[in-house]
Amino acid sequence: MAEMTVNDTNKDLPNDSPHRARTSSLFGWIKVMKKNRKAQVGFIIFVGFILVGILAPVIARYSPTATNFPPLEPPNAQHWFGTTGLGQDVYAQFVWGTRSSLIVGFGASAISTLFAVVIGMYPAYWGGYLDRVMATFTNVFIVIPGLPLMIVAAAYVHDSSTLTMMVIIGLTGWAGRARVLRAQILTLRNREFVWAARLTGASDRRILVHEILPNMLSLFMASLMYGILGAILAEAGLEFLGLGNLTGVSWGSMLYWANNGGALLNGAWWWLLPGGLGIAMFGTSLALMNFALDEVTNPRLRQMSTLSRDRIVRAWHALRGESFQ
């Protein structure tokens, strides 16, 4: 009699999860992402950092640059994250550092994304002379080592304002991303479904928007996420080398001062840790959201994570009303 009741198993399967929504639009994705555990965790951490950055003036408790506290105090009730060798409050530095690191990260990645799209994606679809010029340009930029270029640029402009940092990092970080996006466009533009759309008379614009972009959205978002993370790492790197704005406070400058102030020699782990953890956790949140996005946009990955063989067997036996070990 199994045949009659097969429908009942559906309650054991993720009936209302991913697959249902049409996932070609950003909006559809957001709906689907809400149900993904990895996305949830990643998003909560991400939003936590954003809130810390926005609310820095409210929640910092002390000025991050004030040096009027006892130096090298371990975490306590007054100084939640302890104090630095110069008598600054580490918690205040972390909170303000979050703010400036995120600003540089988002700003620089916006600049590099713009370049990656304009130089990598658009010419690739139309091909021809412009594409060849742009591809060559990109390739030249890729082989220039990024960090030395950034160091030279930062040392040359002699201006370590936040905006300058953004521009330097943005302008040196777009080439790899441009190449990835270009490669994806090149494989997509000759796929059968694109040819089929062309044969039915669809315009280039329509093909780009309706056929190609939906297939690229996940790669694009991944590129964006890694762009942000890369920019934050680049900023931390420059700061750590002493090439940033050392009077300002960021995760990188915290590491710089902790290193130069002998935090490890003094056993002041609380001074060294927050800057590094900030970078690592923010990176993790981006990576988690990115994995989730992969699952949501790739039906195969999605099925693997939601419909494991064990679940299928269990659902089947539940349907048959048998106890199953």
């Binding site: 097969v6 198993t9 399967l13 697959h19 099925q303 679940r311 299928i312 089947w316």
Partner: peptide, 10 residues
């Protein structure tokens, strides 16, 4: 059986 979006397919 396949586990699919629609349920179990025998």
């Amino acid at each position: 059986v396949y586990g699919s979006e629609a349920g179990l397919a025998q």
